[in-house]
Structures are given as C-alpha cells and as structure tokens.
Design a protein around this nucleic acid. Structure first.
Length: 282
DNA sequence: ATGGCTGGCGACGCCAGA
C-alpha cells in the first residue's frame, strides 16, 4: 500500500487500481488545528480509514509548510492554500492529484484569509471550507462571519444545480439546532449558535443541499468537536459543527455517514474529529 | 459568570480558537 509509493504521479497507480474496484467512495473532512502538530494523527487516520477524498481545515501553516511529500508517500495527492499562523485549507485525493478549480471564496477581493479551496477529485467537485468563527460577538469578527455566509450562499447557488456531483464540506462553525450541542444554554452567547447564523445555515440548505450526517442519522446525538476543557472529549460533551453538504446530483448516492471519534481521543489530538460520508460509486 | 486548554509565534506572554 502506501509504503510502495516513491515520488511522482506514476506512484499513485497501485492505489488507483484498488480505487477502481471499490464500489463505494469515502469522503471525509478533518479540521486538524495545525497540520504540523497533527501530522502523525493524520497519517495514522489515513492508513486506518483509507478515505478517498479528504478536506483539511485550520492548517495554520504557510504553503511551504504543507507536508506534501509525506502525504504523497502515504498515497495521497494534494491541493492546498496555506496562511501564516491561522486558517489554511487543503484537499487530498487517494491515488490522484485534485484538479483545483478555485481558491478563495468570490465576492470580496479584499479578503486575504485562506478559507476556501475547490477541486475535482474522484469525479466530484469538492469544496473545503473553513467558515469564520465569529467570536467575539457583537463585533467586526461576527460581521465578517455573516458577510462570509452571504458570499458562500451566492457561490453555492452556482454549484447546487449542476448535473455534476458537488460536495461542500468543512468546518462551518455553525451549530444548526439545539440537538447539535451538549448544552445549548452554555453556548447561548456564542457566535456558533446565534439565530442569524442558524438562519443563514438553513437558507443555504434550502437551495437544495443535503446535510449528510442528519440525513443518515435523523435523531442521533452526533458531535464533531469537543473543546479542550474539563475533559469534554472523554465525557462526550461536544458540538456538531463540521458538516458535509451534498447537491441533488450527489445526494442519491449517500449510503452512510459518521465520525471517527477515536482520533479525538488520542493524546495531543485536534479538538475536531474526522467526519465522513460513504457514497455509492458514480 | 468566569476560566478552564491548545497551537503558533518568537522569546515568555499573547493572540486566536470555539
């Protein structure tokens, strides 16, 4: 498997053959909270779960700091958009190099934060996005979050109706409902739960996007983030804020979805866990 | 009501995260 891969695109061929024979395709999003600090976890998770497409958020690294060689040795091609200290997004393809179609969310030429990248991977147009946190509220950061959601709404409208399969995935920093947080009262003042943020979320869904985790698990308590305080990960006191949205051309292929919580329970873990969907082959 | 923890930066404490 991964250990056979030397440098160069041709090295991807063995994994590509395996891909072609697999009936299903796994698409995952993982908000890593520092790609340099999290590389051992990322490589362990890739080897164990073998996702075919991966969106990464919160790289916290400049472009030159992205571990492209290590990921290629693990069997993954990549497209990435880094930034010093904060933000940063990437897309990985197992046995293939993502074909980048866009970096940066349109609608504000003055926005220099690396929060959006889009590429074709394994026959799907995938957007990896890192929506602004928005705290503290009120203030300029919350205003920036709302404007960013407006821009996302406009751009998503150009993607949702395509006949081609499209997925928008990543850290949305939105708690959609009170079923998506261990204690709504504890978060009532937070930017992630505000009514206008939730309204923007559901306006986005109303374009025709499927919230894959909720589609598969309508009533379950599902979390993708647990903060570092008070042993919240061990006690499963979390939030559902990492999401996978599928357009109507892709949603009928959805067969399963879940969260790899074991990654969050590792020592020195990110505060987010990988979240995934399983799709029938196109 | 508050602060608890973590990574990056760059030089020990501060910013930002959610």
């Amino acid at each position: 498997m991964a250990s056979v891969a030397p440098a160069g695109a041709a090295s991807f061929r063995p994994d590509g053959v395996r891909m072609a024979r697999r009936k299903r395709l796994r698409l995952a999003t993982f908000t890593v909270n520092g790609i340099a600090a999290r590389l051992p976890h990322l490589l362990e998770w890739l080897a164990r779960e073998r996702p075919d497409v991966v969106a990464l958020q919160e790289l916290k690294a400049v472009d030159e700091g992205f571990p492209a060689a290590e990921l290629e040795a693990a069997g993954y091609g990549a497209a990435w958009h880094g930034q010093r200290s904060w933000n940063g997004v990437a897309l990985l393809g197992r046995g293939t190099v993502p074909v980048e179609s866009r970096r940066g969310l349109p609608g504000d030429p003055g926005d220099d934060q690396s929060r959006y990248i889009e590429a074709a991977v394994h026959g799907i147009v995938v957007a990896a996005l890192y929506l602004p946190n928005g705290n503290p509220r009120p203030g300029p950061k919350f205003d920036y979050k709302l404007r960013w959601m407006q821009r996302l709404h406009r751009h998503a409208r150009s993607l949702v109706g395509l006949e081609h399969p499209v997925a928008m995935v990543g850290d949305f920093n939105v708690i959609p409902t009170d079923e998506d947080v261990y204690d709504p009262k504890a978060w009532r003042k937070d930017a992630l739960i505000q009514p206008e943020v939730r309204e923007a979320w559901f306006r986005l869904l109303d374009q025709g996007w499927t919230d894959a985790l909720r589609q598969v698990h309508p009533d379950a308590r599902i979390y993708t983030f647990w903060d570092y305080f008070r042993q919240h990960a061990e006690r499963d006191r979390g939030l559902r804020i990492d999401h996978l949205l599928l357009n109507p051309a892709l949603a009928p292929r959805l067969v399963d979805a879940g969260v790899d919580r074991w990654v969050r329970l590792r020592e020195k873990a990110s505060d987010h866990a990988p979240t995934w969907v399983e799709l029938e082959a196109g």
